[in-house]
């Protein structure tokens, strides 16, 4: 049905623009994935049983270090762990091992993407995982600023301030979501080419590729 009023026309145009933008982004993402897929490193990683599996094992093992340290910090900020040690000290001292873990996770995560780029690009779970990772990073940056500005004033309080507890709770929830999405990437419930709703097709960015992939 044609839009009638100027307001309806404006909404119509906005809708089309958003669809075009999403379609362009999906095309770019898919073209990038196809380029990665054409690299020899991609097939080398994908076809090597031991190399691929050890990269994935390292990705999971580093979770014990990176998220392990992050959970210690978050539980301290919630007031549930190591309450006789200043909160800022816990955050400062565990920051380095946590980042060593995250660095290894990022490198192994990129290698896992390189091994299976097209399917991963069109995975709803991978897309959701990236969104949650960005949200977790924003939450962490905002909280670190708050901690640097006010931490010394409530360092040993029996109950940390609301803002610290909310940030820690949000961090735990966001990372739990990252773990769930990361684990779900392996499952083919919403793979492109399967019978699924228009929404899931949109969320997965299912568009036909030049190479004939879905």
């Amino acid at each position: 049905m044609r839009p009638q009023s100027p307001h309806e026309w404006a909404r119509f145009h906005c809708g089309i623009t958003r669809e075009l933008e999403a379609s362009v982004l999906n095309s770019l993402a898919l073209r990038f994935a196809e380029w990665v897929d054409s690299l020899s490193i991609s097939s080398s990683l994908h076809e090597s049983f031991y190399l691929y599996n050890w990269i994935e094992t390292t990705h999971v093992l580093t979770l014990m270090l990176s998220l392990g340290m992050l959970f210690v910090i978050d539980l301290r900020m919630l007031g549930w762990w190591l309450m006789d040690v200043p909160a800022t000290r816990i955050a400062e001292r565990l920051n380095r091992p946590m980042w060593i873990g995250f660095s290894i996770m990022i490198v192994t995560g990129i290698l896992l993407y390189v091994a299976i780029p097209i399917r991963t690009t069109q995975s709803v779970w991978f897309r959701l995982k990236l969104i949650l990772l960005v949200a977790a990073a924003i939450n962490a940056i905002a909280f670190n600023k708050y901690l640097a500005a006010t931490g010394k004033t409530w360092d040993l309080d029996k109950i940390p301030p609301k803002r610290a507890r909310y940030a820690a709770g949000a961090s735990l929830c966001l990372w739990a979501g990252v773990i769930v999405c990361g684990r779900f990437i392996a499952y083919d419930w919403f793979d492109c080419g399967k019978e699924m709703s228009a929404f899931m097709n949109w969320a997965a960015g299912c568009i036909a590729s030049a190479a004939g992939h879905h």
Binding site: V60, L63, M64, L65, L67, G68, M69, L70, F71, V72, L94, P97, W175, I179
Partner: peptide
């Protein structure tokens, strides 16, 4: 596993 990792490693 992540919580266990945190408690063991710390």
């Amino acid at each position: 596993l992540a919580v266990l990792g945190g408690s063991v490693l710390v």
